[in-house]
Nucleic acid binder design. Structure first.
Lengths: 248, 248
DNA sequence: AATTTTATCGCACAAACACGCATAAAAACG
DNA sequence: CGTTTTTATGCGTGTTTGTGCGATAAAATT
């Protein structure tokens, strides 16, 4: 392999994952650590990346990437980390959209090998950064509000899927009313998603607890895991703890 | 073997494999290293390839890396503006992916009312910013390299669509060889896209002109519009002007 | 503080390269 | 036709570049 090709490869990895480990590159490219270090140094000289102990970072990662505008980002990161624990190698996972799911995806382990179905283009793009994850985007009408695909076609396709786990964000959850929503189409969509997965995890920031909206998606019993940013023994969760529900 | 024949051979290798090693050429062509080096140098002087230590790379091999800063952005904006002229109210448009298409989408007029099918999640998200555009994302396997959906499911869905216009980016276009590509799946995809649209516009920055890759998508006659950033009377376009093709 | 991981430096060696020169075939010319 | 000029190629020699190895230093981890 030519040096230039190696450089291109490294830059592709960097642009894809925003970071790269020296040790990974050694394996992937089958050259010595010295060579990788020299490559990285040369790319630094060309001002194409930042070098750090153990690997390198994308230049654009720090400057142009601004997700600080995400509402309650810290909570969502905490939820994302917890959700990652549910994912094992070889699983088939179905996800919805939303910023919480996105934070979850960003925190998946690099080497994970799994199959992900998703109705969110943004989630698909983020998932594509993992080499060993197969990503299937479910197509259909694209919703301008919630940035996911919806409609009859989506529901038809969902009915053909059998997933081990479904991860979804939520608009509202209530200990008695269960999962609820405001829009008919989204409601239908969530029902279909639930129906095709063995287990369901709901990702939910604490401020959406104890709220019930107009349309019912499912009772609380249909949910396998509730993941919030709160401690397990937090008072707000007591009424959920009583139910048949794993709380993370 | 004549020098010209050798040059042609080298260019063919480059366009086919994106790269070539000096040592391989020595063997294949049965000449000394010096001769190969001189050949490569001459091809560099003609601006036909990129020479590196150990061999040479295709000029158009910018393909999938360089994500952070859009390559040749100004050209792509110019192309996008031209392409917008083809879009009228009420049209059904099918688009591929890529940075050129994205620049096109960003330049659509605000009030436009139309239906867009797309295989690119990023394009879908961008299109969703227009209130009167209905966006349908075609789902399927998601390609990590080209960031579009592909595979059997996509092709099946495409076969059910009838679009007025198909807009696609391109890897390579050649006056005699037509549209060509390197990957089988993308090749199949483009064929399917062409098949379901009444007219096709190819968006192509000038440096991808006159290049032929391994797999053929369609002859030049199947294309309705060729859109580049060049002036209409630019010399590089003369060989395309001869064909049945609208040049913008 | 001890241990492991990652970096840095100098060196060695092979592969790739540039340059001048020699040769020979092809082309141009009287 | 013979001579000169041009072009194309290969060889020898010295140089540069790319890569890996070992020893040592620095950083992270325990």
């Amino acid at each position: 392999m030519l040096k230039k090709e190696r450089h291109d490869f490294i830059m592709r990895q960097i642009n894809l994952h925003n970071r790269v480990l020296t040790s990974d590159l050694v394996q992937l490219l089958n050259v010595s650590e010295d060579t990788i270090r020299r490559d990285l140094q040369e790319l630094v000289d060309e001002n194409l990346l930042y070098k750090v102990h153990g690997g390198a970072l994308s230049k654009s990662y720090h400057s142009s990437f601004d997700d600080s505008t995400v509402y309650a980002r810290d909570s969502k990161i905490a939820i994302g980390k917890k959700a990652v624990q549910l994912i094992k190698d070889g699983m088939v996972v179905l996800t919805g959209g939303g910023t919480t799911i996105l934070e979850f995806v960003k925190r998946l382990p690099q080497g994970l090998s799994a199959t992900f179905f998703t109705i969110s283009p943004l989630v698909a793009v983020e998932l594509a950064k993992y080499n060993n994850i197969e990503v299937i985007l479910i197509g259909g009408l694209f919703s301008k509000n919630s940035q996911v695909t919806y409609g009859g076609q989506v529901i038809t396709q969902l009915s053909e899927i059998k997933a081990d786990l479904c991860l979804m964000g939520t608009s509202a959850i209530h200990p008695d009313e269960g999962l609820t929503d405001t829009y008919w189409e989204i409601n239908q969509l969530k029902k279909a998603m639930l129906a095709c997965a063995k287990k369901t995890a709901v990702l939910c920031i604490s401020e959406k607890l104890d709220i019930a909206l107009r349309l019912r998606v499912c009772p609380i019993e249909s949910i396998s895991y509730l993941i919030t940013e709160l401690d397990l023994d937090h008072e707000s969760l007591s009424r959920y703890r009583a139910k048949e529900l794993n709380i993370l």
